[in-house]
Amino acid sequence: GNAVQEIMIPASKAGLVIGKGGETIKQLQERAGVKMVMIQDGPQNTGADKPLRITGDPYKVQQAKEMVLELIRD
């Protein structure tokens, strides 16, 4: 079955996860074999953390989460 996890991405790092024209998030999805969606909560909310929703095989979702956390670590 499918697992769904959401991680909060600091607004300052959201661009890093998505990448230029969505390149990075696309590569992450391909590498991890999961679906990732950045939940954009309207323009008034630009400074707030953005939830990144990861959907897929539970094991792969976990892997994907680690990859993203690695990416946004300072």
Rank of each mutant, 00 (worst) to 15 (best):
G1M: 15
G1L: 10
N2D: 04
N2V: 15
N2F: 15
A3T: 15
A3D: 14
A3H: 10
V4M: 15
V4I: 15
V4N: 15
V4T: 14
V4Q: 14
V4C: 08
Q5F: 09
Q5M: 15
E6C: 03
E6T: 12
E6K: 05
E6P: 00
I7C: 02
I7W: 01
I7T: 02
M8L: 08
M8G: 05
M8I: 12
M8Q: 11
M8Y: 05
I9S: 00
I9D: 01
I9P: 00
P10E: 03
P10S: 02
P10N: 03
A11Q: 08
A11M: 07
A11Y: 07
A11S: 10
A11T: 08
S12R: 11
S12H: 12
S12K: 14
K13D: 05
K13H: 11
A14D: 06
A14G: 04
A14Q: 14
A14C: 14
A14R: 13
A14I: 15
G15H: 12
G15A: 05
G15Q: 11
G15T: 07
G15S: 10
G15Y: 10
L16C: 05
L16T: 09
L16Q: 07
V17W: 03
V17T: 02
V17D: 02
V17C: 03
I18A: 15
I18S: 07
I18Y: 06
I18K: 06
G19M: 02
G19K: 02
G19S: 03
G19I: 00
K20R: 08
G21H: 12
G21C: 08
G21D: 11
G21F: 09
G21K: 14
G22R: 06
G22A: 13
G22W: 06
G22M: 06
E23T: 15
E23Y: 08
E23V: 09
T24E: 07
T24H: 11
T24Q: 12
I25E: 01
I25P: 01
I25F: 04
I25N: 02
I25V: 05
K26R: 12
K26I: 14
K26Q: 11
K26P: 02
K26L: 07
K26E: 07
K26T: 08
Q27V: 07
Q27F: 10
Q27W: 09
Q27E: 13
Q27G: 12
Q27K: 14
Q27L: 07
L28G: 00
L28W: 03
Q29I: 03
Q29Y: 01
Q29V: 03
Q29T: 03
Q29S: 11
Q29R: 05
E30H: 12
E30M: 14
E30V: 11
R31D: 11
R31C: 07
R31I: 06
R31A: 10
A32N: 14
A32T: 14
G33S: 05
G33Y: 02
G33M: 05
V34W: 00
V34G: 01
V34H: 00
V34C: 07
V34A: 05
K35H: 13
K35W: 03
K35C: 06
K35S: 06
K35G: 08
M36H: 00
M36N: 01
V37A: 09
V37L: 11
V37D: 11
V37S: 10
V37C: 14
M38Q: 03
M38T: 04
I39R: 13
I39N: 14
Q40C: 11
Q40Y: 10
Q40G: 11
D41R: 09
D41P: 09
G42R: 12
P43S: 15
P43R: 12
P43D: 09
P43A: 14
Q44N: 14
Q44W: 07
Q44L: 09
N45H: 12
N45G: 13
N45W: 06
N45I: 11
N45F: 14
T46G: 11
G47F: 12
G47V: 09
G47A: 12
G47Q: 11
G47P: 06
G47C: 09
G47Y: 05
G47W: 05
A48N: 07
A48C: 15
A48Y: 11
D49V: 08
D49F: 07
K50E: 04
K50S: 08
K50G: 04
K50W: 09
K50Q: 14
P51T: 12
P51C: 13
P51I: 07
L52W: 01
L52I: 09
L52C: 04
R53W: 04
R53H: 10
R53G: 02
I54A: 01
I54S: 02
I54E: 00
I54D: 00
I54W: 00
I54M: 08
T55Y: 05
T55L: 10
T55W: 06
G56K: 00
G56I: 00
G56V: 00
G56H: 00
G56M: 00
G56P: 00
G56Q: 00
D57Q: 12
D57K: 10
D57C: 07
D57A: 12
D57R: 07
P58M: 12
P58G: 10
P58L: 08
P58H: 13
Y59T: 15
Y59P: 14
Y59N: 15
Y59V: 11
Y59G: 14
K60I: 01
K60H: 12
K60D: 04
V61H: 00
V61C: 09
Q62M: 08
Q62Y: 10
Q62G: 11
Q62K: 12
Q62H: 08
Q63P: 02
Q63L: 13
Q63M: 11
Q63S: 09
Q63W: 04
A64D: 01
A64W: 00
A64N: 01
A64C: 06
A64Y: 00
K65M: 08
K65L: 04
K65N: 05
K65A: 09
K65T: 09
E66A: 07
E66L: 07
E66D: 13
E66Y: 05
M67Y: 07
M67C: 04
M67V: 05
M67H: 08
M67G: 04
V68L: 05
V68N: 02
V68E: 02
V68M: 05
V68A: 04
V68Q: 02
V68F: 01
L69P: 03
L69I: 06
E70Y: 04
E70N: 05
L71E: 07
I72W: 03
I72R: 02
I72Q: 03
I72K: 02
I72F: 05
I72P: 02
R73K: 14
R73L: 06
R73P: 04
R73T: 15
R73G: 15
R73E: 15
D74L: 03
